[in-house]
C-alpha cells in the first residue's frame, strides 16, 4: 500500500464496526460519497472523521485494497494485465456470495465507480446459466409472483431455461 509521507493529509473514515481507517486523498477521491464530504466547507482533514454507518471495516478495507491495487497498475503491459486478472480473481475468491452482495451495496453507498463496475460484472458473471430460483436465493429476493403469473413467465421463456443449473 502506497503511504503518503505526511500522515496529516490522509482522510479518516470510521466504519460501523471498527477503528478509524486512514486513506490517501487519491483513494478517497474515487469514493464519490467521501468526496462530497471533503468538498464541504466544514470539513477539516486533520480533525474530521467521516462516519460510515452503512459500511463495515471489512468492506471498506476490501474496497481500499481494490483501489490501491488498480491505481498502482494502470499500465497496459501484458504482464501487468495478467497479474491484474489474477488479483481480481483472488479478490472475488475470498468473497462468499453474501459478502459479495454486501460489498456491492457498500460500493454503491460509497459510490466508487471502479469497484461498482467490477462487482456488477462479477454478479452478472455469476448469474450466467443460472435459474430464476438460483438468482432469487443469491439475492435473497422473495418471489412475489402468484403461481399463475410465475407459470406464465416460465412458459413464455421456457426455451431459454432448458438445461440450466437449478442451483
Amino acid at each position: 500500500m502506497a503511504k503518503t509521507p505526511e500522515p496529516k493529509r490522509t482522510i479518516s473514515l470510521k466504519p460501523c464496526d471498527g477503528d478509524v481507517i486512514e486513506v490517501s486523498p487519491m483513494i478517497a477521491k474515487q469514493m464519490q460519497t467521501i468526496q462530497s464530504f471533503i468538498e464541504d466547507d466544514s470539513f477539516i482533514a486533520t480533525t474530521t472523521i467521516i462516519p460510515l454507518p452503512n459500511v463495515t471495516a471489512f468492506q471498506l478495507s476490501k474496497i481500499i485494497d481494490y483501489l490501491n491495487y488498480h491505481s498502482n497498475s494502470k499500465a497496459v503491459a501484458d504482464n501487468v494485465k495478467e497479474s491484474t486478472k489474477k488479483f481480481d480473481e483472488e479478490f472475488l475468491k475470498e468473497l462468499e456470495h453474501d459478502k459479495l452482495k454486501e460489498l456491492l451495496h457498500a460500493a454503491n453507498y460509497l459510490n466508487v465507480k471502479e469497484v461498482l463496475d467490477f462487482l456488477c460484472q462479477a454478479v452478472a458473471d455469476l448469474i450466467q446459466d443460472k435459474s430464476v430460483k438460483f438468482v432469487r436465493k443469491f439475492f435473497g429476493v422473495v418471489n412475489d409472483y402468484s403461481v399463475e403469473e410465475e407459470e406464465d413467465i416460465r412458459r413464455t421463456h421456457a426455451w431459454a431455461f432448458e438445461g440450466v443449473e437449478e442451483d
Partner: peptide, 17 residues
Amino acid sequence: IIDRLGLIEFLSFHGVC
C-alpha cells in the same frame, strides 16, 4: 447489473420478482 447480462441471464432476472 442488467446492462452486463446476456439475453438468457436477462430472462432469469426478469422472472425473479
